[in-house]
Write a protein that binds this DNA or RNA. Structure first.
Lengths: 65, 65
DNA sequence: GATGAATAAAAATTCAAA
DNA sequence: TTTGAATTTTTATTCATC
């Protein structure tokens, strides 16, 4: 289910460093969530993640977002 | 000169939206600064730019950075 | 609508070379 | 030490399928 995967991604990002989508894929797989890179690319867009020098990060959201 | 190009990049980012490195390259070229994608990839790292849903953005820097 | 496989596009890196 | 050309790697998209 997508919403659970999104939650798992958020958690991973606050707890660990995620450098690229394949690393994210492997970390999710370690939690039993198996998806492909294409799906993670879409998730990253939907979650509005930022990619910076140290990897992916959660955005600061305005009220209501 | 790299430092001037970095300044130009910062200016472009606050004034315009830059979606990808080739667009950045073209906008810099419009200012007379001609470099390749490889150079811009390095600049982006050096400037610690973030890439988000709307394009590249300047980072919020801590004091002293 | 959500996903994967394949592909295209974008970005990072390597390897000269100045 | 900075850069470009070529290459590799990573990410986004397309095109089916469920």
């Amino acid at each position: 289910m997508k919403s659970q995967r999104h939650s798992a991604i958020r958690e991973l990002l606050v707890k660990t460093t995620v450098t690229n989508q394949d690393e994210l894929r492997r970390k999710l797989a370690g939690r039993g969530i198996h998806v492909t890179q294409a799906t993670l690319s879409r998730d990253i867009r939907e979650l509005k993640l930022l990619k910076g020098p140290t990897g992916y990060a959660l955005p600061v959201l305005a009220d209501g977002e």
